[in-house]
């Protein structure tokens, strides 16, 4: 009982679903809420998803080497807490940046060691890392929300570069950098080969283990950058644990055509995947879909995309 697809459908499967979904959502909004269709309003919506967009850059990297990273939630939480609690004492505001990157580096090394060297299931490892980080943060915070974010970051967050809000511009710059890194450096070839066929990559002399470890380190450092941007967007710190961000990152990446090994969507497919989420939030909010509906939408997006991928893999 093999599922067969007609050729027309299967060639459509090659285009990242993000583009269709983006177009559909865009048209829906245009028709139903034309008043929202201006640069300023859209800028605000897109600015909201900039941290997610940055997180996705790490997620797509690990997913292309057939792994996954859900520890972004933990990194987000700990960076957020570090910046808003005053726990670091009276340090210069700029000092939070290297500290956040260092935290990301440590988390990434732990993930990379567990997944690349010890062959631990990536979901289990990164979920457990999130649990550990969340526990530590909540312990230090004694369950109470920490204080206010330094104004410095809020101020930058609210600036604009030409028509782009700064976080969006930063996100686009990082996306370009990642795109260049993956297409112009040997590392990108390693990633593509491991995603396509890890066994063949090993036989071709690609350092598979090392590449997977480095991908995880990079993903966590990128998560700490996303955390910095996310922290800048809020006035007061929060210690609420939510897997929404990393899960949205997974969903956006899959929507963008990057599915556990396959990298057809490149870097810009997932970029549009994130834009889909920006529009989706607007559509769902403006149609009054409650928070649980968003949870269901997240789950459905991942499941449906994984099913499409599974059907495609079964076919080839």
């Amino acid at each position: 009982m093999k599922l067969t697809l007609n050729p027309m459908f299967s060639s459509l499967l090659r285009v990242p679903p993000a583009y269709f979904v983006f177009a559909a959502l865009f048209v829906t909004l245009w028709v139903t809420k034309p008043q929202l269709m201006n640069v300023n309003v859209m800028g605000v919506f897109v600015r909201q998803v900039a941290p997610l967009g940055i997180l996705v850059l790490g997620q797509l990297l690990v997913m292309r080497v057939r792994s996954i990273d859900l520890s972004g939630a933990g990194v987000l939480l700990i960076v957020n807490y570090m910046m808003s609690s005053g726990i670091m004492g009276d340090i210069h505001v700029l000092f939070y940046i290297p500290l956040a990157l260092l935290l990301g580096l440590i988390v990434g090394l732990v993930n990379g060691y567990l997944i690349g060297r010890r062959r631990v299931s990536a979901v289990i490892a990164t979920l457990a890392v999130t649990t550990i980080l969340a526990g530590i943060v909540q312990f230090f915070a004694s369950g109470k929300p920490p204080g206010a974010m330094p104004d410095f970051y809020n101020d930058i967050y609210n600036t604009k570069i030409w028509i782009f809000p700064s976080p969006v511009a930063f996100w686009i710059v990082l996306t370009v950098l990642m795109s260049v890194f993956l297409s112009r450096f040997v590392f990108g070839r390693y990633v593509a080969s491991i995603g396509e066929n890890p066994t063949a990559a090993h036989f071709s002399g690609v350092p598979v283990e090392r590449t997977v470890i480095i991908a995880h380190v990079m993903a966590s450092v990128i998560a700490s950058i996303a955390a910095l941007v996310q922290s800048s967007s809020i006035a007061v710190g929060s210690i609420r644990v939510g897997l929404e961000m990393p899960i949205d990152a997974v969903a956006a990446t899959i929507l963008g055509g990057v599915v556990f090994g396959r990298g057809e969507g490149g870097v810009w497919g997932p970029f549009f995947g994130v834009l889909c989420f920006a529009l989706l939030f607007v559509v769902m909010t403006s149609f009054g879909v409650p928070e649980p509906g968003k949870l269901i939408a997240r789950g459905l997006i991942i499941l449906l995309a994984a099913i499409l991928y599974g059907m495609r893999a079964a076919k080839s």
């Binding site: 599922l3 299931s121 979901v123 899960i247 556990f260 409650p290 928070e291 649980p292 509906g293 968003k294 949870l295 269901i296 939408a297 997240r298 789950g299 459905l300 997006i301 991942i302 499941l303 994984a306 099913i307 991928y309 599974g310 059907m311 893999a313 079964a314």
Partner: peptide, 21 residues
């Protein structure tokens, strides 16, 4: 449908939680 068990049940985790909420 050839979906990895962890991915299938992870997405169900969100769908079911959404229904519960």
């Amino acid at each position: 449908l050839n979906v990895h068990p962890i991915i299938a049940t992870l997405s169900m985790q969100f769908i079911v939680l959404g229904v519960a909420k």
